[in-house]
Design a protein around this nucleic acid. Structure first.
Length: 365
DNA sequence: CAGTCGTGGGC
DNA sequence: TGCCCAAGACT
């Protein structure tokens, strides 16, 4: 890889790490999964299970969103063995609302692999961690550094932003990541790799933010090349965004005499994989829940449109759903692949958010 | 490499 | 309001 035009000088390589760690010692965020520097100094060791769980939950997700889910998971599944032994449906229900549901499926898969092949212990090398389900380059390096104090150099969105500014790296994302990885590997202090990674993430989350960074009190205020050039807010350079297509579909609300509602479990792969949803059609062709066509002929034209649409924005498309309802006739059984669910069960935050919007529209409006 | 995969908060 | 963004992994 060619050296960047503003390749850091050797002087710049050394002392930024020291300055950042000093800042971290004084300002580290107190997070439920974190061992603060003072406690670490006193001999407290991180629990790899908790570090792993937090890292998976934090993928593309804010700390404030993760916190309650993390606490819930720790209560329900205090260790790898408990998680590995849990039924899939219980884990998916506990994850409901957090998004990116493949993370939850891989979480269970990983826990079961650890119990089956690793005596229930996490491997302590980056390479071995990388081989586990749901653990990619970032998470493998993060766990190695934070949980095992190995000289690994994770690069997440925060670190990419922070270092692109420190070294004024103007290569657009995603190619930028390779340059940041090189620079980062040279910076990592061998004695505190975990704290160094966490320090950069704290810096990115609290001071070196995407918009209006607070350079005034930043420990890297002086060496930061982007700030020197006055272009800190323009970095990192992102690829132009693509237009978000719109889809629309219909949700079918079928209620039986007990007041239970018909639902289906989505296939493991793809959108909302493994989650409980209301039957619908028209918007996700490969995974259509073929409900109406599988109903007795007498029911097929008994749908009544309900007032109100549900709009939900996914990562790569915007979805608008209308709702059709009817009450199932006596003796009607749930078709294969479908199940009746009592409203109190899906009200316990056990559904993906888009489906929570549906039942709230039906029952509360 | 580029597309897929959720959601909620901030502005 | 609509857009941007967040401790990425997988295909």
């Amino acid at each position: 890889m060619p050296e960047p035009a503003n390749h850091p000088t050797s002087a710049l390589l050394k002392w930024p790490a020291t300055a950042l760690l000093a800042w971290y010692d004084a300002h580290a965020r107190d997070l439920p999964w974190r061992i603060l520097p003072a406690a670490a100094k006193a001999g407290t060791k991180p629990d790899p299970y908790r570090i792993w769980l937090s890292e998976i939950m934090l993928q593309q997700t804010n700390v404030t969103t993760v916190r309650p889910y993390y606490e819930k998971f720790l209560t329900l599944f205090p260790n790898v063995q408990a998680l590995a032994a849990a039924p899939d449906a219980q884990v998916m229900a506990a994850w409901a609302g957090l998004g990116y549901y493949s993370r939850a499926r891989n979480l269970v898969k990983c826990a079961r692999t650890l119990v089956a092949d690793y005596h229930g212990e996490f491997p302590n090398t980056e390479a071995a961690l990388l081989s586990l389900p749901g653990i990619g380059p970032y998470t493998a390096a993060a766990i190695a550094a934070i949980a095992f104090n190995q000289p690994a150099a994770p690069v997440d969105g925060n670190i990419e932003r922070v270092l692109s500014r420190l070294y004024k790296l103007q290569t657009p994302m995603p190619a930028l990541k390779a340059e940041v990885k090189q620079a980062n590997a040279k910076l990592v202090p061998k004695d505190r790799p975990g704290d160094f990674a966490q320090a950069m993430m704290d810096l990115g989350a609290t001071l070196c933010t995407p918009k209006r960074p607070n350079c005034l009190i930043c420990p890297w205020r002086e060496p930061c090349l982007a700030r020197q050039a006055g272009i800190e807010e323009t970095l990192p350079i992102r690829a132009p965004k693509k237009p978000k297509p719109e889809r629309q579909g219909t949700v079918f609300w079928l209620e039986n005499a007990k007041g239970h509602v018909l639902m289906a479990r989505r296939p493991d792969k793809g959108l909302l994989g493994g989650m409980l949803v209301f039957p619908s059609k028209g918007w996700d062709a490969p995974n259509e829940s073929q409900l109406p066509e599988r109903l007795p002929g007498a029911m097929q034209n008994q749908w009544t449109p309900l007032k109100g649409e549900v709009v939900h924005v996914f990562t790569h498309f915007k979805l608008t759903l209308s709702i059709q309802a009817q009450t199932a006739p006596k003796g009607f059984r749930a078709p294969k692949g479908f199940q009746w669910v009592a409203p109190q069960d899906f009200a316990e935050e056990a559904l993906p958010s888009v489906m929570t919007k549906i039942w709230k529209t039906v029952l509360l409006k």
